[in-house]
Simulated assay, not measured.
Amino acid sequence: MGSEEKGIFLLPKGFKAGGLHCGIKRKRHDLGYIVSEVPAVAAGVYTTNSFQAAPLAVTQRSIAIENKIQALIVNSGNANACTGNQGMQDAYEMQQLFAGKLGIGSHLVAVTSTGVIGELLPMDCIRKGIDTILNPEFEGPAEFQKAILTTDTCVKSAAVEININGKTVTISGAAKGSGMVHPNMATMLAFVTTDANIEQAALLSALKDTSNKTFNMITVDGDSSTNDMVLVMANGLAGNEALNEAHLDWLAFADGLKVVCESLAKQIARDGEGATKLVEVKVVGAKSLEDARAVGKTIISSNLVKTAIYGQDANWGRIVAAIGYSGVPVIPENVAVSIGSYPVFANGLPLPFSEEEVKAYLGGTEVDILVDLNQGDAVASAWGCDLTYDYVKINASYRT
């Protein structure tokens, strides 16, 4: 497929990014941008929360005009959600101000916000920030990555390089997400850029398929945000023949996009608020992909499973219970469960295992759970984290 995944936000040809502190937060970066030299084919997937924030409406309407954007402006610290007509006006003003700085049409600018719900944006701060943000001292992928964070403890990024028609194509992404993350597209903010030349319908199809396999298979706390989206920009400057599903190198592109998105998804799960472990649930032997996904997401979403993992308790009964209420018909006597390399349940009965060894395994920073339904050939993986005391502390005082 090309080079291995790189854990950096490696900007493809023709893109630049940056960020600064404009005053929404007390000290940290809170306003960022990505700009392409030319209009880029765009595709997005958005939260299904009924209370969609104003920036999502603005962005969706803008992309619909010609399926392209050339830039995005994003603020953190304030979600501009549940803010009524004023919130919509503020989102459009952000769009227009940045478009004016770039000298491009307003519809070519996407707008994104993340942070506290129900508060109006401090537009004086944002106006000043947009006015100065293109200064070279604020430019750089690292500055952008810092600007999109809220309760995250680290930046999240990934990139791959692939070969299309003998041309090197880069696919790169940066994301934020730590809490209010649950499988229900979208579940966080992710921005993917590529210099691939690709048809918009094919890009949107690839993004939806990839999101279902990656971003829709993670959870931190069971809450879906009002603001979140995944946005892809493809500016075509790599110079390859236009990609679509019939192209000989289509699978290389689709696989590259999945590598980037899966890496970002797992980084979000690993950085769950207060989390100490990344948990992967792999479900095999399902009748259908939908069944495999449903079982995996139910287990990874179970607070009882998550707290048991935090407590290093090999309580396989909580895993089995989650399978049973997943809504997927199963034959209990056929189900098998392993924690790491330790089989703990099969044939409807517990298996003997060393409590001490499994406890030691659960003390690590990565935990794998394998479930075999023994009903078919479908396979899916889901990712999440443990649930700790610190999660409660963080969210009990989020606004204070």
Rank of each mutant, 00 (worst) to 15 (best):
Gly2Ala: 11
Ile198Glu: 12
Val232His: 07
Glu273Pro: 11
Gln375Val: 08
Thr112Ser: 07
Gln200Pro: 11
Ala196Cys: 13
Glu280Ser: 12
Glu139Met: 11
Ala142Asn: 02
Leu362Ser: 01
Phe138Asp: 15
Gly77Phe: 14
Gly115Phe: 05
Glu245Asp: 03
Ser178Asp: 12
Gly340Ile: 04
Lys213Gln: 07
Thr59Gly: 05
Glu290His: 09
Cys82Tyr: 01
Ile300Gln: 13
Leu10Ser: 10
Gly84Thr: 06
Leu203Ala: 08
Gly118Thr: 00
Arg399Ser: 01
Glu241Trp: 00
Ser205Asp: 01
Gly296Phe: 03
Tyr342Ala: 00
Ile126Leu: 15
Pro343Phe: 06
Ser157Pro: 04
Ile133His: 13
Ser288Leu: 00
Ile319Glu: 01
Glu137Gln: 15
Glu4Pro: 14
Gln95Asn: 10
Glu161Val: 00
Gly285Arg: 05
Val379Asn: 02
Asp221Gly: 04
Gly222Gln: 07
Ala71Ile: 12
Lys306His: 05
Arg61His: 12
Pro39His: 06
Gln145Ser: 10
Ser3Leu: 10
Asp131Ser: 13
Asn135Arg: 15
Ala175Asn: 04
Val109Tyr: 05
Glu137Arg: 15
Ile369Leu: 03
Asn80Ala: 13
Thr83Met: 04
Pro343Ile: 09
Glu199Trp: 08
Lys287Asn: 10
Asn78Gln: 15
Ala336Arg: 15
Ile323Phe: 10
Gly140Val: 07
Arg399Gly: 00
Ala17Thr: 02
Asn67Gln: 13
Thr114Pro: 06
Leu264Phe: 01
Ile319Pro: 01
Ala57Gly: 04
Gly285Pro: 06
Lys13Cys: 03
Ala190Arg: 01
Asn78Cys: 15
Thr114His: 10
Pro39Met: 08
Ala234Leu: 09
Ala91Thr: 06
Phe215Ala: 00
Phe353Ser: 00
Leu349Gln: 11
Ala175Phe: 05
Asn303Ser: 13
Leu251Lys: 13
Tyr310Gln: 12
Val38Pro: 09
Met94Lys: 10
Glu366Phe: 14
Leu373Pro: 14
Lys146Met: 09
Arg293Met: 09
Leu20Met: 15
Thr298Lys: 15
Ala42Arg: 04
Ala202Tyr: 04
Gln200Ile: 03
Cys82Lys: 03
Glu5Asn: 06
Asp221Glu: 06
Val41Gln: 06
Val337Met: 08
Ala246Arg: 09
Ile63Gly: 11
Asn216Ser: 02
Gln60Lys: 15
Thr170Gln: 06
Ile268Val: 14
Ala336Val: 13
Thr276Ala: 10
Ser113Asp: 11
Val295Cys: 06
Val337Gln: 08
Val281Cys: 11
Val74Met: 11
Leu72Trp: 07
Leu108Asn: 06
Ser354Val: 02
Met185Lys: 00
Val45Asn: 01
Lys266Glu: 06
Phe353Pro: 00
Val35Trp: 02
Phe9Ala: 04
Thr193Trp: 02
Val259Arg: 12
Leu251Val: 05
Ser211Thr: 00
Phe345Trp: 13
Arg28Cys: 12
Phe191Gly: 01
Val259Glu: 11
Asn75Thr: 14
